[in-house]
């Protein structure tokens, strides 16, 4: 899933909730998450159990605290990758949860090009006012009171110059569905 032409690859995932809400990362995903392909891993939290595993995937792992991590990691983080400033938060601090206005407020507060949050267990790639809002969903498809059926998902960012390509990987039944979108600064 990676090649030289992709630029810097960033794996974005979170809310695994193992063991509270799931036993494993789906096997199909596990097989895709192999070392030495990605340069960064960004994790939106609630994945304490996966931290060591993620560290084997890429040299840079950026992890923030989820609502159940009891403060093991920072509340938010800003990462510069290529030309992009990327903000990461779990998202439970941003009320109402998943609200675009509130997200926008935090995007401005962190002064980032891309704001990555989780918590809702619903993957999103949205653009508002020239800024990008990304939510990788839950990689395990963990239970959430917000949605009835949670689809396991994660996102891959390919950052090259002033361009970001996002690949959303979703596990629909037994098949992995990929959708791609692109944006420029």
């Amino acid at each position: 899933m990676a090649g030289k032409d992709f630029g810097e690859l960033v794996l974005v995932l979170g809310d695994a909730h193992i063991p509270h809400r799931a036993a494993f990362i789906p096997e199909k995903f596990q097989r895709m998450l192999v070392p030495n392909k990605m340069q960064h891993v960004i994790c939106t939290g609630n994945s304490k159990d996966q931290y060591e595993g993620l560290r084997t995937l890429a040299p840079n792992v950026h992890m923030v605290s989820g609502d159940l991590d009891e403060g093991s990691f920072p509340e938010s983080k800003v990462v510069q990758i290529g030309q992009f400033r990327i903000g990461v938060m779990h998202g439970h601090q941003i009320a109402p949860w998943g609200d675009p206005h509130s997200l926008g407020m935090f995007q401005r507060r962190l002064d980032v090009d891309i704001l990555i949050t989780g918590h809702t267990h619903k993957n999103e790639v949205n653009e508002f006012d020239g800024k990008w809002f990304i939510n990788p969903g839950s990689i395990t498809g963990a239970y959430s009171s917000l949605h009835a059926d949670v689809t396991p998902s994660f996102i891959l960012l390919a950052i090259q110059g002033n361009k970001v390509v996002t690949y959303v990987y979703q596990l629909l039944g037994d098949t992995v569905d990929v959708s791609k979108s692109e944006f420029q600064k």
Binding site: D67, E70, G71, H92, Q93, A95, P96, W97, S145, L146
Partner: peptide, 13 residues
């Protein structure tokens, strides 16, 4: 602080 965030979120939900 963490609890309050969750409480606010829950109530809003």
């Amino acid at each position: 602080l963490r609890a309050l965030h969750s409480m606010v979120g829950s109530l809003l939900l």
